[in-house]
């Protein structure tokens, strides 16, 4: 295993850990955090085949969702992996620390059929966005209807946010979201979000789930 302290998250250069520990306004309308180093695995396969779903379930404990734009798995990141629907034959598995190489077992389980398991952990940054005005911030740059009648917890969507392509996953109704964005766009999107959230007041957090004030999952900064 390589030396973890030599690794850098996509937003490492912004010094968010330091900013999060500074005195910040408690009455922020928007809370933002980077969720670094969580394992992301691209999964391709024929979702209409029960054997495929079962093979995945055997390894991960959950089957890939077949309903478009939904997520299976626990709400809390710490409780295990989640699977996001990206396409009729494409999913994103999220969970665990990237250097634990979690996709190996899955690759093995699917090795006897036409499927692809690709480690894409480093391909995207994950930004957690929550707070009473989180939805308003997203509405400034996202054409999706995010009203609770149209989009709620457990839903995900690939869409456009400002000028970046993103995967948007609503975690809970507070509302809190996780935004997956290609690594090279992370600096742009973070800057855009902070700018757009300015009128509501922004607090930088170190935790993907700021509600309980704990560092989420097995993620370490």
């Amino acid at each position: 295993m390589p030396d973890r302290y030599r690794r850098q998250s996509p937003l490492a250069h912004l010094g968010l850990v330091a900013r999060a520990s500074e005195d910040q306004s408690a009455e922020a309308g928007v809370v933002m955090a980077e969720c670094p180093f969580c394992a992301q695995t691209g999964l391709r396969g024929d979702g209409s085949l029960a054997r495929f779903g079962n093979a995945v379930k055997t390894v991960l404990g959950i089957a890939p969702p077949t309903e478009p734009n939904t997520v299976t798995g626990p709400e809390d990141f710490a409780d295990g992996a989640r699977i996001l629907w990206l396409g009729p034959d494409e999913w994103l598995i999220v969970g665990g620390d990237v250097d634990a190489e979690p996709s190996g077992a899955l690759r093995l389980a699917l090795s006897d059929r036409h499927a692809a398991v690709v480690d894409v952990s480093d391909g995207r940054a994950v930004i957690a966005l929550s707070g009473p005005n989180a939805r308003d911030v997203l509405a400034k740059g996202c054409p999706l209807d995010l009203h609770p009648r149209a989009f709620g917890p457990g839903r995900c969507a690939q869409t456009v946010l400002a000028k970046a392509h993103v995967i948007l996953h609503q975690i809970d109704a507070s509302p809190s979201y996780e935004i997956y964005v290609h690594r090279s766009f992370a600096d742009y999107l973070w800057s855009w979000l902070e700018d757009a959230a300015g009128e509501f007041g922004v607090r930088i957090s170190n935790s993907r789930s700021d509600r309980n004030g704990l560092l989420g999952g097995r993620v370490t900064p």
Partner: peptide, 12 residues
């Protein structure tokens, strides 16, 4: 039977 996945951003 081919799957394509973009890994441009996964590697430095």
């Amino acid at each position: 039977k081919v799957y394509l996945n973009s890994v441009t951003e996964s590697w430095a």
